[in-house]
């Protein structure tokens, strides 16, 4: 009897409050966090917001009895290195968890090495092991185009791709796969694996950061480590970014993080050599322009 009552109640739900759902599901928090913690990336944020509203509306429709198939949530992130693909993937996992599309919301991050075996018969169990670990959450495959190596027809990557496709299709409710990699290489990868393209609903492009955005990121990173820029060192940083961008192996935010790490090294050295007697916290956390100007980037060399 109780069950029947429940059923009746379910059917009598005739109105849903989307705004309320939005707040109570915690999606609002995640989107806000996304806005605040990630600088720039406007197109990415827009796409994620769109996806989130679609999923929210889908859930509401389901409650009203408007049947729809569970949506395909597999995604592909393409963009240059250091544009925040992994960071966003982590947020996506949290988002899908709050929306109830994945049960656990953890992120399993893998590359080719974790999926492809070294000898015949090694690949399938390895790939399945990873897929099983990711079930209930999000599987993030970084530099996914490495899976497919056309120059070697006996490459085991193809086997991993086949298993991946099969599980992506049959266990759609159990896990979400996110592929990531550089734009041009990913395009080539999808061209040679049409099965992948059609099974992925959301293709999201990550644009490069502008110089201003990178400077803003640098400041956030520095304050996150409890250091400070002054006016001069901020200018030096801006100059650094401009010069670094023109040099090879530029990796957006990652290059900035490396630059800051090295600046800290030089700062520590400077503080150690110049200090006589007691020094305070301000002195220890101040990054001066000389700490940045000493970088090889300014003398024309590559800063790896």
């Amino acid at each position: 009897m109780e069950n029947e009552d429940d059923k009746k109640e379910l059917k009598t739900v005739s109105k849903v409050n989307l705004k309320e759902d939005f707040q109570s599901s915690g999606v609002a928090d995640i989107l806000l966090e996304l806005d605040n913690s990630l600088i720039g990336l406007e197109p990415v944020k827009t796409r994620i917001r769109e996806t989130a509203s679609l999923l929210l509306v889908d859930k509401a429709r389901e409650r009203l009895g408007l049947v729809n198939e569970s949506p395909t949530l597999h995604m592909s992130f393409s963009g240059n290195p250091g544009t925040g693909k992994t960071t966003v993937a982590l947020k996506i996992a949290g988002l899908l968890y709050r929306l109830g599309y994945v049960r656990k919301g953890h992120l399993v991050s893998v590359t080719r090495d974790d999926l492809v075996g070294q000898y015949i018969g090694h690949t399938a169990p390895k790939t399945k092991e990873v897929l099983k670990k990711a079930m209930g959450g999000v599987l993030f495959i970084d530099e996914a185009y490495y899976l497919y190596r056309p120059e070697n027809e006996r490459d085991y990557g193809q086997e991993a791709i086949e298993i991946l496709l099969q599980v992506m299709e049959n266990n759609r409710d159990d896990l979400v796969v996110v592929l990531a990699g550089y734009k041009d290489k990913m395009d080539k990868f999808f061209e040679s694996n049409p099965g992948f393209r059609s099974r992925i609903a959301h293709h999201i492009d990550f644009p490069d950061y502008s110089n201003d955005e990178l400077l803003e990121i640098a400041e956030v990173m520095v304050s996150g480590m409890n250091y400070k820029f002054n006016k001069k060192s901020k200018e030096a940083m801006a100059e650094y970014i401009e010069m670094r961008r023109k040099q090879p192996h530029f990796a957006n935010a990652r290059s900035i993080r490396n630059a800051i790490d090295r600046a800290r090294l030089r700062q520590a050295n400077r503080v150690f050599n110049n200090s006589e007697g007691p020094i305070g916290a301000t002195f220890l956390s101040q990054i001066e322009d000389v700490d940045i100007m000493q970088s090889r980037v300014f003398s024309g060399g590559i800063d790896k």
Partner: peptide, 16 residues
């Protein structure tokens, strides 16, 4: 197969 130690979700076991 091997016992499953580190799968956070039951879907992995049902799959196997």
């Amino acid at each position: 197969g091997h016992p499953m130690f580190d799968n956070p979700d039951a879907a992995a076991v049902v799959y196997e």
